[in-house]
Nucleic acid binder design. Sequence first.
DNA 1: GCCAGTAAGTTACCACGAGTAAGTTGGGTC
DNA 2: GACCCAACTTACTCGTGGTAACTTACTGGC
Lengths: 207, 207
Amino acid sequence: MESRSVQAAPARRRRVGREERERQILDAAVAVFSERGYANASMDAVAERVGVTKPVLYTHFGSKEGLLLACVAQARTELLEVTAAAAAAATTPEDMLRRGTRAFFEFLDERAAAFSLLYSEARIAADAVEGIRAQQTDFIAALLGAAAPDAAPLQLQGWAQVIVGACERLAVWRAQDKRVTTEDATEYLMDLAWTGLQGRASGARAR
Amino acid sequence: MESRSVQAAPARRRRVGREERERQILDAAVAVFSERGYANASMDAVAERVGVTKPVLYTHFGSKEGLLLACVAQARTELLEVTAAAAAAATTPEDMLRRGTRAFFEFLDERAAAFSLLYSEARIAADAVEGIRAQQTDFIAALLGAAAPDAAPLQLQGWAQVIVGACERLAVWRAQDKRVTTEDATEYLMDLAWTGLQGRASGARAR
DNA sequence: GCCAGTAAGTTACCACGAGTAAGTTGGGTC
DNA sequence: GACCCAACTTACTCGTGGTAACTTACTGGC
């Protein structure tokens, strides 16, 4: 004597297939986690958004942390696909770096919610996010290795770390300052990573 | 009939001055938070480490979040002092970038616990950590502005973001791979930010 | 058509930790 | 040595992650 609506919509909404439910839950989780922050988001809130009760989430993902990790894993897969495809279309090392970088920024633009999850969210997913970074640095180090075959492996890794860190930071900066376009961000990265500050700064002496 | 030790040390441990207590609590909090992670660390654990009970923490810092923020604020102050002092000792822009970068890595080496707190810990402190980054980027942008007076302000900010992001990432990488010395990390940053990859990579054509 | 059997869901609970109200005690001061 | 206040403790509430046990909708076999 409360729900069951007025007359139609007899609240007849149960029994959804496993795969579809999991997609629903993941989408809801990304939304809720990114809106309220992981720590302040309750599992009940996610469940309510899907239209089920809490234990359903637990049968699918085991724990709150497991749910977060599943969200992260999904984003990870998509990220590699997008950047690798962009880099594959390039012909020179410079072009590769530029295209890959731009693809990264564009991906984050499209998927702003997933992004804020990935890069603002907690130690709980730290290992998983670190795994994404490792994936990206390995990928970039391989590209750099092809372009600079005389560099030591550790050096390649170091350069790749620099690029990944720089991109991540630029992405966060863009989220705060909307004036910065993906092209701007890409060029700032290229200015330093490819061209270097040497020529630009040497015009003005340190005085 | 359980504590109160054997005979000496009559558990006579109350009444400590406000400032000293706050320092004790901050130290304990950094230790506990970095050991177990903010989310898994209980306020009782921090209190026990200090040798008091939970409400004491609340009278000093208001909330668990407030305690974390106080830890972060303390680290922030120290970080700026250290890097600014290092940069001030330099004579050329290149030297400034190199000395500041190295000071950053050395600071994190000395204060590993505070570091893991800063760079692994959660959305709760995200704003505060973001404030530290803003402090560092403003500082670096000012240095770059002196060295490259014809660059646009937004461009300077962008370059500074690249450097801050790169340093942060290199720092995390170093924590994982102990082979990488502060000098290595500093040089990898300089390789890209100052010299640029252009010369190095152009030896090998894209083929 | 009807009746198991099982996967999908729900209700109703526990445990644990953040936060607090109210009472207690140490120690400096006159 | 009586007083007072700040430092400290005890003993609670409440919200939320997680779970055990029960219920219900859909499946295929006869």
